Simulated scan of single mutants.
Amino acid sequence: MKIIQSDPPNNDICTERLTLRQPEKSHFVALQNIWADTKLLQFIGPPSTPEEVWARLLKYIGHWSTFGFGYWMVHETKTDHFLGEVGVAWQQRTTLPAHGDLPEAGWIFSPAAQGQGFASEALSAVLEYSGSRINSPGITCLIDPSNKASILLAERKGFKKFGTTLIGTNRINAYLRLI
C-alpha cells in the first residue's frame, strides 16, 4: 500500500481509491448511520444513540487536537461517498492485559463498503502514517473472536494475538503490532 498524498495542514491521506479525512462536525449524520446499524455492530456492541455518536465525534476531534493523530473518516475518492472510519487512538482502557498503555487501532465500515479491500487499504495508510508519529513501541486492537473478517485483516497487517480481555460480559481477543 502506498500513500499517494498526505496533506500536513489537515492530515488528510489519499490512497489509490480513498480519501481519509480528519473528523469534523459534518460527519455527524454519516456516523449516526454507521453506529445505529445493529447488524454492522454485531461484534462491537449495541447501537449508539445520537447523543453517544455526538460524544464519539467530539472525542475524535479532541484526540486530533491533543495528540496530532486519531481517527479518520474514510471516503471513496471517486464519489466522495462516506465508507466508514479507521484510526489509532489512546483509548486508556483499563481491562487490556499487559499492553493497556499502548494506542489502539480500530475500524468500522458500512456494509456496502465491505468485501472490496477498502478497510485493508485504509488501515495500511493509517498504520504507515501513525508509525512515524506515535511515540509508542506498538499498537493494539481488540476484536470479537467471531469477527473473522477483522481478525484476518488485523493478522494481514501484522497484529498478533496476545491475550483476551472482557469488555462488559464479552470476551474479546487482544492483538499487538510492533511499530
Rank of each mutant, 00 (worst) to 15 (best):
K59Y: 15
P23I: 04
E76L: 05
W90D: 07
A98F: 13
T19F: 04
N33K: 12
I172W: 09
I44C: 09
S48W: 08
K2E: 15
G70M: 02
F162T: 13
P111Q: 13
A149I: 00
Q114C: 04
R17Q: 07
Y175I: 09
S48D: 13
S48L: 15
G87T: 02
P97H: 07
S124L: 02
M1H: 10
E24Q: 13
I108S: 08
F162I: 13
P9R: 08
G163D: 08
T38N: 11
E52L: 11
L41T: 06
P103C: 05
E51F: 11
L57I: 11
K59V: 04
W90V: 07
G138A: 03
S136F: 01
R21M: 07
Q32I: 01
V29A: 13
L20R: 03
N11E: 10
Y175V: 08
G131M: 03
Q114A: 01
N135L: 08
D144V: 06
I151C: 04
I61C: 08
A105W: 04
L153A: 01
W72K: 03
W64Y: 12
N173E: 12
F43G: 05
G163I: 05
E24N: 13
G168Y: 06
L18R: 06
F109V: 01
K39M: 07
T164H: 11
R17M: 00
Q114Y: 02
I143M: 10
S124Q: 13
G131Y: 04
N135W: 01
L41W: 11
M73A: 15
A89Y: 03
L127T: 01
G62V: 03
F109H: 01
E128P: 02
V29D: 14
R93Y: 14
W72P: 07
E128K: 13
G168E: 11
A174D: 07
Q5S: 11
P23K: 08
G117M: 00
T165D: 03
A55M: 10
P145V: 00
T169I: 08
S150E: 03
T77S: 12
E51G: 12
L58R: 15
A125Y: 04
Y129M: 10
K78L: 13
Y175K: 09
E155C: 02
K78F: 06
G138T: 02
I13D: 05
R93C: 02
F109K: 00
Q92A: 11
I139C: 15
A98Y: 14
A149P: 02
G131S: 14
G62C: 07
D37C: 05
E155T: 00
R156M: 02
